[in-house]
Every structure is written in structure tokens, then in C-alpha cells.
């Protein structure tokens, strides 16, 4: 079985080589400390790479970090082996990418969630605050108590950015709404603590919240579970998590890390690689809210119309969603 698979893979690689000249790329992905199966951010990157493999038959290499010293080491290992392009996931990789990209000027690098200003690096950042604003509006409209919750992972600026956009969205719909915010912890374990996530969500429900949004990686699984158990609504993040508890997940704020990875691989394959600075917001489809058969019953026509309008206004610049990172401050 395994042999057969290997043979067919080899055959497809050979076919791919015969059909396309630029197809001989060797892409690689370096995940952040969370690991590739975190049900969230890194996993989105993994699914993008996986989809590229299925579409093109081009194998990719990946690596999961154990500690900070391995960041540079892994990037160098990839570059030395002629991997190209190399996509690094997460803002923590910035220093390592900056160093290694300078050492290997002929290799194309991409980094997600951070900006590295070098001629061979593509920096992809997302406007998470815009997507969070939209799901904040949904939460405020779906809430009957006028109280909604937010559960973050680790208390770092990136997560405050989610929280701030969310709060602005909530207040845009209902200026009297109350937003409860909790962070799960202060260590990396905060991204992977569904039990504590569930407890935080429950405490917010006890205080009257009936919709809760999480930006907490695998911790959020517990948040959504608690919402489903209590008959309240949860909002997913990064990947489309509507299907985890159909009917109990109001929507998901999708951050298309998968598209970013796929696009990087695909551009390299088609010789379309561009380096530089890419900001993916609502306008670019980099962030969005998820609507599918799992949450169709929860979202009314009125809600759809309101968020569609807000989305257009954000894209046109009529509504400016505050970016926490711009001044390290949330005015709401």
C-alpha cells in the first residue's frame, strides 16, 4: 500500500515535471511553536500547503519548532537544501527570517503576521481587527442580553488587536452593550488549554453574556464547547469552525493563512513571485466571516444586510476600524 502510494506519487511528480517547466519548486513551511495541528492558525497554514500538494502534486517539507533557537536553524536547513520558497508562520519568526533571508538572497521567503523588509521576503499581514469588527456586529445583533464575551489566548498585542476590533463592532450596533474580556494565560499553554477556555466562557455566561468570541487557538475549542453546552452562541476564529457545533457557532472570523501559503507556493511555481508587503483585509478577502449550512439558521436577513453594508463601508474607508497595533491602545 505504502509502496503503491510512493510509486503513484513519483509518477505524478514525473508527469508534473514533464508538463510544466517551472514546476520544480521545493516549497517548505515552518510552523510556529503551536505546532501544525493547533486547530487554528498553524493548521490553516498546513491545510494551505496540503491543498497545494493535492492540486499540483508538488511535495513540500515542513518543520515544527520546539524552542526559539531552532527558528534560524530550521530556516537555514531548508535554505541549504535548496528549498524555495520558504514560508515562515507567525510573528515570532521575524528575527530569524531577517537573518537567514539576508544570507540566502536567491531564496524566496515569506512571513505571515509580520513585516521583514528585504528584497527576497514577502511579508503578509492580516487586518484581523476588520474581521473581528464584523463578527462583533453579528454578536451584538444576536445577543438578547446586550452582553457579549471575548476569550483571548495569551495576553499579547496581536490578541488585543482582535479584542479591540470586536469591541468596536459590538458597540457600533449597540452602544450600551457590555463586552467581557478574558485572557487565558501568560504562557504558551494558553493556546492549548480548552478546559480553562471553557471555564472562562462559563463565567462570562454567568455574568449575563450570551455570545462569546474566542481568539485562542486550541483553547477556543473549549470555549465553543461551553457555549454549545450552555445553549449560548460561540464565534470561531482563524479557520471556519462553524461545523464544530452546528447551530451553536454563530460564525467564524476567518483569517486566510491557508490562502497566503497556497498563494506563495503557487506564485513561485508560476514564476510570479513578488516580494514586499501584503496587507490582507476585508477588501482583499484575507479576513472574512463564515456563513454556511451550519449557521444559516442563526443569521437573519437583517444581520446579513447590516454586515454587508458595514463591510462595504470598511472597504470604502467610510468606517475605520481601529488597529490596536497602531498606537498600542484601544479607545473603546
Amino acid at each position: 500500500m505504502k509502496k503503491l502510494f510512493a510509486m503513484s506519487a513519483a509518477a505524478s511528480v514525473m508527469l508534473a515535471c514533464a508538463s510544466a517547466l517551472a514546476a520544480d519548486i521545493q516549497p517548505a513551511v515552518l510552523y510556529d511553536l503551536g505546532g501544525k495541528f493547533d486547530k487554528s492558525f498553524n493548521e490553516a497554514a498546513h491545510s494551505g500547503a496540503q491543498r497545494f500538494l493535492e492540486d499540483t502534486g508538488i511535495e513540500y517539507r515542513d518543520f515544527e519548532l520546539q524552542n526559539d533557537s531552532q527558528r534560524e536553524q530550521a530556516l537555514r536547513n531548508f535554505a541549504r537544501r535548496g528549498m524555495n520558497p520558504i514560508v515562515a508562520i507567525g510573528f515570532s519568526q521575524a528575527n530569524a527570517v531577517e537573518k537567514v533571508a539576508a544570507e540566502y538572497p536567491d531564496t524566496q521567503f515569506a512571513i505571515v503576521d509580520m513585516v521583514v523588509d528585504l528584497p527576497n521576503v514577502r511579508s503578509i499581514v492580516f487586518k484581523e481587527h476588520e474581521g473581528s469588527y464584523i463578527v462583533g456586529m453579528l454578536a451584538a445583533m444576536a445577543s438578547e442580553t446586550g452582553k457579549v464575551g471575548f476569550v483571548g489566548g495569551m495576553d499579547i498585542p496581536l490578541i488585543r488587536k482582535f479584542a479591540c476590533g470586536y469591541k468596536q463592532g459590538v458597540l457600533a450596533v449597540n452602544a450600551d452593550a457590555e463586552v467581557f474580556q478574558n485572557m487565558t494565560g501568560t504562557t504558551g499553554a494558553a493556546w492549548n488549554d480548552p478546559v480553562k477556555g471553557g471555564e472562562l466562557a462559563k463565567s462570562q455566561f454567568d455574568r449575563g453574556a450570551d455570545v462569546v468570541y474566542h481568539a485562542a487557538g486550541a483553547t477556543g475549542i473549549g470555549v465553543l464547547q461551553a457555549a454549545a453546552d450552555a445553549g449560548k452562541l460561540g464565534i470561531g476564529v482563524d479557520s471556519n469552525q462553524n461545523g464544530l457545533h452546528p447551530g451553536s457557532v454563530l460564525s467564524s472570523m476567518i483569517k486566510r493563512v491557508d490562502v497566503a501559503v497556497y498563494q506563495a507556493f503557487d506564485d513561485a511555481k508560476n514564476d510570479n513571485w513578488t516580494s514586499g508587503f501584503e496587507v490582507l483585509g476585508l477588501a482583499e478577502g484575507g479576513v472574512d466571516w463564515a456563513l454556511d449550512e451550519n449557521n444559516a439558521a442563526l443569521v437573519t436577513e437583517e444581520m446579513k444586510a447590516a454586515v454587508a453594508q458595514a463591510k462595504n463601508q470598511i472597504i470604502s474607508g467610510e468606517i475605520v476600524v481601529h488597529d490596536y497595533m497602531s498606537d498600542q491602545n484601544c479607545p473603546f
Binding site: 510573528f91 515570532s92 521575524a94 503576521d113 509580520m114 495569551m154 495576553d155 499579547i156 498585542p157 496581536l158 494565560g185 501568560t186 504562557t187 497595533m325 498600542q328
Partner: peptide
Amino acid sequence: NFIAASLMVYLLVNVIGEAGSMQP
């Protein structure tokens, strides 16, 4: 250990961290 982690995150995010950086 946990108190140390909380203290360090607080300091790096709010006090001694480089402003405008995602990474504390």
C-alpha cells in the same frame, strides 16, 4: 513559575517591550 510568566508577559507587553512590535 506561573507568577514569573505573568510578570514577564506584563512587563514585556506593557512596560519594556518595543512599541509597535507584534512580538513582546
